[in-house]
Amino acid sequence: MSMIPQLLFTGLGIGSIYALVALGFVLIYRATNVVNFAQGDFSMIGAFIMVVLAIDLGVPYWIAVIVAVVTMAAFGILFNYGVYYPLRHRTFLPVVISTIGASILLQNGVLAAYGPHPQSLPPMLPFPGFTVGGVFLDSQYLLILVVTFALVALQYLFFERTMLGKKLQATSQDKEMASLLGIPVALMIGITFAYSAVLGGVAGILVAPLLFVSINMGSTIALKAFAASIIGGFGDVTGAIVGGLALGVVETFGAAYISVPYKDGFAFLVLFLFLMVRPQGVFGEKVAEKA
């Protein structure tokens, strides 16, 4: 009986991870018009920083989390200057390939430093979870849901209530006009990368105790997050969140009721159907015809 709410809970938890990474995709896409193929590797890097800090160096867990998040922000800025900024005046393809190159570099850099063996991280909370009405609420999933919700709420406040948030929005809507008003466009894009890296890193840190920390853990998450952002309507922030959550739920139910081996396929089947029926996504506007 409690099967359905149980699956819903798990699905939303996993969906939150997709949503966070999808959000990172969308923010960078809106600021630069480029799909960042290394977005998933931000999660991988975040998780590995945690392994280094919490396991290898024995830094207290929650301090390690804070250090990891700050490091991710710095990493995002570095990524911008190394991978996007030199190509900012080019068409999207060279930039896309550049992000692919970055993805290869990051995965194999970590591989060289850490070897191929997957690492594991302990759960972040000291208790396994609660049982409410026959549904077991795993503490890690709860944490994921809470953190995602808090991040989305914070992001909303930041974008809607602060001048800096408005400047970031203005930059993503019209870079040239933004520069005419004296908004430092390059800095705004740097901040966007930093924030996207933090989102990806947080997703990696949160999901690490559920999965093994491996160099290609980001790839699968990123592909699903990408699918989620298309389903939501590419470039739309709300769409990315809703798409991510929906995908997590669909996948969990699909695995439970249809087929476990094809679990990873449901996301893409849904994506496929969406692209056929409603290519602009749930929240996307109709593709404008412009001559």
């Binding site: 190509l87 970055a102 290869i104 990051l106 995965q107 060289a112």
Partner: peptide
Amino acid sequence: KEIYLAIYGLSVILIMVFMP
């Protein structure tokens, strides 16, 4: 040795930066 694929990734970025 170990870092050859990482260097390969870096080369891809560099080729795109200098030869788009």
